[in-house]
Design a protein around this nucleic acid. Structure first.
Length: 644
RNA sequence: GCUGCUGUGGCUCAGUCGGUAGAGCGUCACAUUGGUAAUGUGGAGGUCACGGGUCCGAUUCCCGUCAGCAGCUCCA
């Protein structure tokens, strides 16, 4: 690797290498120049060259480490292009994010999709100009004056929030100067492969009380090939969208007649019921009992629970015989009434009561999203009533249960611990004890988690489990919430060993979260090609022609007798057509039957997993598949799947 | 709820610079009875999301409503 130094001399290094390796024998100025793109005339790896506060840090030339700086620089180039095109635009902030970057701007005229092309064209010019990027600082007051003069009110506001004695750092490329902590590339030159991807609104400083700005999203890669690969990956991911697959596979539908209220179609219902069968089995084994509580209860109950005051805007209410009623947005108050239905002893605790509860919540219109965010959904809820000394073990048990569910499906997840919010009930001591209970359970199990300060429920702190959809958005699924408040509000009791009354503590928890959301995640995770135990149709019998329909019917009967979900293709079509249809429906097994099979009582097996598996006696096939289903096995799909 | 975009047969989409619409798939009928990803022919199916306005005339232009999409905000 040859680096041209400032004075024109040339120095040779063995690369790839870290700038840290060379930092000892060159000054900062030289390093910055090295980063400006003069390495052997090859600049692609410079994306990883970063500079922070004028100090060299993690400067490996050949890793993913610098993607943030690379994209952040691209966002500055975009801002510069926008200022060149429309000088009246005010700039807010423009960070790098996962897979890309954005810049928030305040424009007097609406930016439309066609403008993105104009901006891209201008950005290309800036890259071509290969502007060096330099950093300088000013004291806070001077920085404020600078942006006031430039009429950039958002920048002024940002600086005003910094400490009085702060040195404010700026980055400059050509005529464009931006407030920025860095890091950045040393030149606009290496930014060759970028694309502006979308346009959206975003509130200034993330508060809906503030003005809505225009946010322009983009992404950038060191190489054109990487950008193309990224675009292809996103397109592929969109094919897994559960809304699209839900339609194709006949799982569920949405109608204008009930926005946010999903309809489950026969295939989707099989999926749902199969999941529930599994849920009931593992909960029975884990010592849960199951209850069901009414969908609608009176106002007094919701006032006692606190929902009437804290959650009313999301509740559907009605009046019956002059009394206010609300459709339940949560199952807990109903569960508490069941707890109170008889006197409880410490011997009954922990009492684990599960409920598949249908709840309704009025989500704001813009929040709805397929099955992921709906207005009515089934929670695989459970309420656990226990003594204080049982907290930790119970929480650990629940975490393990949830983990086992996600393991079965091969989901990756991350855990968040949310603490006391502003709008909360209860004493400091209770919150402290509850939060500590959750935290120590997670620590004991050695689980990684992030803490969300102030993000808990109004009645207690919570642990959330988040799963990813096909394009990387995360959705909260499982949650465990510790609650001192509701037992207090409802005056729940148990008789202790001492013969005295005591107050139980309560856990609210879900594993799937919402069955609907979980099914959405499941669809995208498997791209609709469910493991056999979940597949709505597990086996499709395909006769070569009508002549073998009778044999096909016999095979179908045997499959049905064995409890396998099977169908017979009775269409007057050729075998190729039938196979294509079955594949597009992502059915795990096809049994092809014709003259050869009928004669010897065989079936020709073609699976989604391995393709043609050859002929087998029907009984052998049956026992294999039954075993696969009973074991809830996830066979790996090895044959290329095609999406319609 | 906010910003931007979108809304045409069951599905995927084309089209109308304003003169009441097309294709493929699916569906139905008939013929074909075929061995591992699409047999052929024919038929049915749409008040172009809904409500106003402009115009001789609106699916097309304008306004509003509803719904969807992306993002933001929210999410017990």
């Amino acid at each position: 690797m040859i680096i041209t130094l400032k004075d024109g001399s040339v120095k040779e290094y063995a690369g790839p290498m870290s700038v840290l390796d060379i930092a000892s024998d060159i000054s900062e100025g030289l390093a910055r120049m090295a980063c400006a793109g003069e390495l052997d005339g090859e600049v692609v790896d410079l994306r990883t060259v970063v500079d922070k506060d004028c100090h060299l840090n993690i400067l490996t030339f050949d890793s993913e480490g610098g993607a943030g700086a690379f994209r952040h620089t691209t966002s500055h180039i975009m801002a510069q292009a926008i200022k060149r095109l429309w000088p009246e635009v005010k700039l807010a902030i423009g960070p790098s994010i996962v897979d890309g970057f954005y810049y928030d701007i305040d424009s007097p005229r609406a930016i439309v999709a066609e403008d993105l092309e104009k901006i891209e064209a201008e950005m290309k010019k800036i890259v071509k100009e290969a502007l060096p990027i330099t950093r300088f600082t000013k004291p806070r007051e001077e920085a404020i004056a600078y942006f006031k003069e430039k009429e950039e009110p958002y920048k002024v506001e940002l600086i005003e929030d910094l400490p009085e004695d702060a040195e404010i750092s700026f980055y400059q490329q050509g005529e464009f100067v931006d407030l920025c902590a860095g890091p950045h590339l040393m030149s606009t030159k290496p930014v060759k492969a970028f694309k502006l991807t979308s346009l959206a609104g975003a509130y200034w400083r993330g508060s809906e009380k503030n003005k809505m700005l225009t946010r322009i999203y983009g992404t950038a890669f060191a190489k054109k090939a990487d950008l193309d690969a990224y675009i292809t990956r996103m397109e592929e991911a969109k094919k897994r969208d559960h809304r699209k697959l839900g339609k194709q596979l006949g799982l569920f539908m949405m109608r204008d007649e009930g926005p946010g209220f999903p309809f489950f179609l026969p295939n989707g219902m099989i999926l749902k019921n199969t999941l529930l069968d599994y849920w009931r089995e593992i909960h029975r084994k884990a010592g849960y009992v199951e209850i069901s509580t009414p969908i609608m209860l009176n106002r007094q109950l919701w006032e006692t629970s606190g929902h009437w005051d804290h959650y009313r805007e999301n509740m559907y209410t009605t009046v019956i015989d002059d009394t206010d009623f609300a459709i339940k947005p949560m199952n807990c108050p109903g569960g508490i009434l069941v707890y109170q239905s008889e006197p409880r002893s410490y011997r009954d605790l922990p009492l684990r009561m599960g409920e598949i509860g249908l709840v309704h919540r009025h989500e704001k219109s813009g929040q709805l999203h397929g099955l992921m965010r709906v207005r009515c959904f089934n929670q695989d809820d459970a309420h656990i009533f226990m003594m204080p000394e049982q907290i930790k073990d119970e929480i650990k048990g629940v975490v393990k249960l949830i983990d086992s569910v996600y393991q079965l499906f091969g989901f990756k997840y991350h855990v968040e611990l949310s603490t006391r919010p502003e709008n909360s009930m209860g004493s400091d001591e209770d919150w402290e004890m509850a939060t500590e209970g959750l935290r120590s359970a997670l620590d004991d199990l050695g689980l990684d988690y992030v803490v969300n300060e102030g993000d808990g429920a109004f009645y207690g702190p919570k642990i959330d489990f988040h799963l990813e959809d096909s394009i990387g958005r995360t959705w909260q699924c499982g949650t465990i919430q510790l609650d001192f408040q509701l037992p207090l509000r409802f005056n729940c009791e148990y008789i202790g060993q001492d013969g005295e009354k005591h107050r139980p503590i309560m856990i609210h928890r879900v594993a799937f979260g919402s069955i609907e959301r979980f099914i959405g995640i499941l669809i995208e995770h498997y791209a609709g090609a469910f493991p056999t135990w979940l597949a709505p149709v597990q086996v499709k019998v395909l006769p070569i022609s009508d002549k073998y329909m009778d044999y096909g019917r016999k095979v179908l009967e045997k499959l049905n007798e064995a409890g396998i979900r099977a169908e017979l293709d009775t269409k007057a079509e050729k075998i190729g057509y039938k196979i294509r249809e079955a594949r597009l429906q992502k059915i795990p097994y096809m049994l092809i039957v014709g003259a050869k099979e009928e004669e010897e009582g065989l079936v020709s097996v073609r699976s989604r997993f391995l393709g043609d598996e050859g002929q087998k006696p029907l009984d052998a096939f049956l026992s294999d598949v039954k075993q696969e289903i009973a074991g809830r096995v996830s066979r790996k799909v090895e044959v290329q799947e095609e999406t319609k």
